[in-house]
């Protein structure tokens, strides 16, 4: 809270107007001063979330003061930490690894989750696949019942030990194998959310089970779980921060590399901020997706 006390409000985000009744942002006050559309749009976008602004500004402020000294000393310190040895590039390449890692994991996870969920649904529908189903259930139980870090190390130092697989790829697959178990549960719920009559209608037309699943049930299930799926990707992105356990030079590990070289914890704040921005971008994507889905529903009803 600022020293100005309760009367201070961010422009364009006043909580009440003069009457104290309306709780909508006042356009007349701030909008006039800031000449129009851009600010209004910004203030109404999901970005303009007080919590988000506080976090962003707060992190920046904390970071700046952590480096100590007067303005000149601070700048020199920043230059030493980030410009010496081009260390800022470490963060950049770490970010690259993190993104590649997450992408590999997301794709692997979705494919594994898809197969596992279909196995479990087909078993429930009476397909003679007891062994496959046992495998799928065991997979989900084991993966969800053990820490991802342990899985990561077992997979890299154990299963992939003698294979010519790069660390990033190995870590990507490991996180994908982990995520697959969670995605399987998401898809299972999605498939269950599709009316049983859909499968019956498809089967009554002579479509085999898997084809009916692929053409009729899964497209509807996918649509239902898309928001949950994006949430899983957000979790996944943050989880990859433990990839350093198998010496993957991801964003987190690169930040720590700089810290050990400079004894400056600033890079960790920068890293936190980068993760936060990535997560916010995914959240924006999620909102877009949700809005598109809602609009889709509406247009189909109204026309």
């Amino acid at each position: 809270m600022t020293a100005d006390g309760p009367h201070h409000e961010l422009p364009g985000h006043s909580v009440s107007d003069a009457t104290g009744v309306s709780r909508r942002p006042s356009r007349a006050g701030a909008g006039a001063a800031l000449s129009g559309g851009a600010w209004t749009r910004f203030s109404r976008s999901p970005w303009f979330n007080p919590l988000v602004v506080t976090l962003l500004v707060g992190a920046g402020v904390v970071y700046f003061f952590m480096t100590g000294g007067g303005p000149r000393a601070r700048l020199e310190r920043l230059a030493e930490v980030y410009l010496t040895q081009d260390r800022w590039r470490w963060l950049l390449s770490g970010l690259g690894s993190t993104l590649v890692l997450t992408l590999i994991a997301a794709v692997t996870g979705v494919m594994i989750g898809l197969v596992l969920s279909v196995i479990r649904m087909a078993w429930r529908a009476g397909a003679p696949i007891a062994l496959l189903n046992l495998f799928a259930e065991t997979y989900v139980t084991v993966v969800r019942g053990t820490p991802v870090t342990v899985q990561l190390m077992i997979i890299y130092f154990g299963l992939f030990a003698d294979l010519p697989v790069s660390r990033v790829l190995a870590a990507g697959l490991a996180f994908g194998i982990n995520s697959g178990a969670y995605v399987a549960e998401i898809f299972r719920a999605g498939i269950e959310s599709v009316d049983g009559g859909q499968m019956e209608a498809a089967r009554s037309l002579g479509l085999p089970y898997l084809l009916a699943m692929r053409k009729v049930v899964l497209p509807q299930a996918f649509r239902n779980v898309l928001p949950t799926l994006v949430n899983e990707f957000i979790t996944l992105l943050k989880e990859t921060a433990v990839a350093g356990y198998i010496a993957v030079e991801d964003l987190t590990r690169e930040a720590n590399n700089i810290r050990t070289k400079t004894f400056d914890i600033g890079p960790l704040y920068v890293t936190a901020l980068i993760y936060l921005v990535l997560v916010l971008l995914l959240t924006l994507l999620l909102r877009r997706v949700e809005r598109k889905l809602r609009e889709g529903d509406r247009s189909q009803v109204n026309i």
């Binding site: 009316d195 009559g197 089967r203 009554s204 037309l205 002579g206």
Partner: peptide, 17 residues
Amino acid sequence: DQVRRRMGMVFQQFNLF
């Protein structure tokens, strides 16, 4: 599946996709 192709079925709840 071959059998089902020879019999069309219409449901109470339509079940359009």
